[in-house]
Design a binder for these strands. Structure first.
Lengths: 132, 132
DNA sequence: TTATTATTGTAACTTTGTCGCATTAATTAA
DNA sequence: TTAATTAATGCGACAAAGTTACAATAATAA
């Protein structure tokens, strides 16, 4: 029997932050946007809850931080599959690339349940700004 | 002017641990295999040095840990490209898949410099053991 | 053998994230 | 509307990952 969830003010606030952003956010981002008014443990718990519900997905980045993004296009059932993420090495923005991509084949004997693909590089904005 | 590197005993020990393993290792693994005799900061510094030299590459995993693996097949120049890694969710082994894979295309305006692709699932050994 | 300086160990520190527990508040029943 | 139930929150303590400053040590070159 699952615990039933409650629709609290804090959850709404976190969800608003997610909705208002077009890129993935790490804890620091949430803390800043919530003006430090919400406890760290609460933020993490709420985000983890959203992940468990399939509303949000996690992106683990080389800087050791975890980023969270709303699952808009992949809300359906297999929201764990086919995630392609992009990280700009200049402005450090992390975002979801919504275009489908070819999932790499594994050698015989392996079974895939999830795939995380993170491409680093320059986003369009930083490319123009640096003139690369 | 780059600092010149020195070939120290500690570096050799760390390199031996890497060579003796057929999977990627996290700090905890190094510490265990080195019997806790080497300082944490030293281990991290040496591993970071190997990464900078292109001998080793990093894999960042959802558990928040960083794994390190010898760059055997991709030793050449563009060792950052085309990495496909596999993580067994049962035995927690992380390894490099040496087969080439199709690098996903980015939308126009983006430039890729690196790609990290981590596939989670069951490895052949755990598949047989669990009878899945 | 000596001088130079890269490397190491130590300790302190930062950041990320988790956990137990008392308190608060959302929901349900009365 | 009020009272009862229990999910959710805030707090504090904690653990793990990783970094940094600095003094001591040890490769390398002279």
């Amino acid at each position: 029997m699952d615990k039933q969830k409650r629709n609290t003010k804090t959850k709404q606030l976190v969800m608003n932050v997610l909705s208002d952003s077009d890129s993935a956010l790490c804890y620091e981002d949430f803390d800043r946007r919530l003006s430090g008014k919400m406890d760290r443990a609460t933020v993490y718990r709420i985000l983890q809850g959203f992940c468990d519900e399939g509303k949000v997905h996690k992106i683990t980045v080389e800087n050791g931080r975890t980023y969270y993004a709303l699952c808009l296009h992949c809300q359906a059932k297999n929201h764990n599959d086919k995630h392609l993420h992009f990280r700009c090495v200049r402005c450090e923005t992390i975002l979801c690339i919504d275009e489908p991509f070819v999932i790499p084949a594994l050698p015989a004997g392996y079974r895939m349940t999830d795939i995380q693909c993170l491409i680093s590089g320059h986003c369009p904005n930083c490319l123009t700004e640096t003139g690369l």
